[in-house]
Design a protein around this nucleic acid. Structure first.
Lengths: 202, 202
DNA sequence: TTTGTTGGTCAACGCTTGTTGGCAACAGTA
DNA sequence: TACTGTTGCCAACAAGCGTTGACCAACAAA
């Protein structure tokens, strides 16, 4: 197989544009939409290709196989505020800032819903979520919480509440959870997240 | 098709035992295990039948089709304490009691994990979860919270935290969440659930 | 004993899936 | 011009899926 084709992360930061870049992007966008709506198994390569307006075999050529496609589609950056910025604002606003950011992020980007759906049934998806917790939420907790040694625990607690609300609102669609305005959700969850991050061990 | 065979809930409370009851139970147990481990799509009728030690066609005869099998396997009773019992104990212990109960329940019964997995990708699974929220968690909130009018909202908030922790611990298996002893999880989550149930609107 | 019902297996159906290889059109280069 | 690599479509493959119907063995009722 052509090794230089199937990579999704170029070895060099700068890669010369290819004529097929538009197609690659279309495939990725379609994949995200289908994974978000259907989960890993029911999002078929054929349906993704159809939505992207190309032949299924192109997906294979550009992403190797279905797993590779998912890995590329689930490249996620939560864009969390830098830990330093968080330390500069009033200590009791961190929870509110984070919850608000998470909800925004979820509403604007279907990839997060996709990952949540896939993580529930697919081991690669679950692994990717563990990685995001470790690399993106962990550092925040480490900077904000009193004792950096138990930052991972606090990060997991925060994740449990945030993911739980995302599950209720965007995946399971509990009617009341969907109907609640974003500000109200923030009002309820912010103190929880704040406590998980900064309260002394119970 | 034989109508009297495919029902899973007998019209009359008492139904005479059939010779095939053992097989039916074996199928149901195998189905719960496979759905919990693999989710809806990857849990195949063939694999379930194999685990139950019978032929795939038996599954069809007794449960109609795959959806019917799942519906039967996802018949869930959270066994929550009666709302009245909750009102009798100190008001600030309700959160702790509930969280502890949920964690026990989850650990002892893989069906809950199965439903969580399936609910994330399957619309019937999600519908079942909405039903459980409404019929089993809702009433508790209605009895415990200050204004019964917003009981549904409070129930959804409780569910978001409890389901989020179940997701982290039993499905995504965040290492720290798995490693935390049950008592510690209760210590952290109890005040959250307590506040969602009884605190005045934020 | 005969007859009807129930519990169970077997082999196959039609369909969808991920995946592959061949082939044509095009672009860039020499 | 001829040559080489890229982009794309088409047709097909093998495997696995849910589901079906024919068929047999054991039991129960007559």
């Amino acid at each position: 197989m052509q090794d230089s084709e199937t990579r999704s992360e170029p070895a060099t930061p700068e890669t010369k544009p290819r004529r097929s870049d538009a197609t690659r992007a279309a495939i990725l966008a379609a994949a995200r939409e289908r994974f978000a709506a259907d989960g890993y198994e029911r999002a078929t390569i054929r349906s993704i290709a159809k939505e992207a307006g190309i032949d299924p075999s192109m997906v294979m050529r550009y992403y190797g196989n279905k797993e590779g496609l998912f890995a590329a589609a689930a490249e996620i950056d939560l864009n969390l505020p830098a830990p330093m910025d968080l330390r500069m604002q009033p200590a009791d606003h961190v929870g509110r800032t984070l919850v608000s950011h998470f909800l925004d992020r979820w509403e604007q980007d279907e990839v997060l819903t996709a990952l949540l759906r896939v993580g529930a049934t697919n081991s690669a998806g679950a692994e990717r979520m563990r990685q995001i917790l470790k690399e993106q939420i962990g550092p925040i907790a480490a900077q904000v919480c009193p004792d950096p040694a138990d930052a991972p625990r606090r990060a997991a607690l925060v994740a449990s509440q945030v993911l739980g609300m995302a599950l209720a609102r965007f995946v399971l669609r509990f009617p009341v959870a969907v109907a609640m305005p974003k500000e109200e959700v923030v009002d309820w969850l912010a103190p929880t997240v704040q406590r998980y991050l900064t309260a002394p061990e119970p």
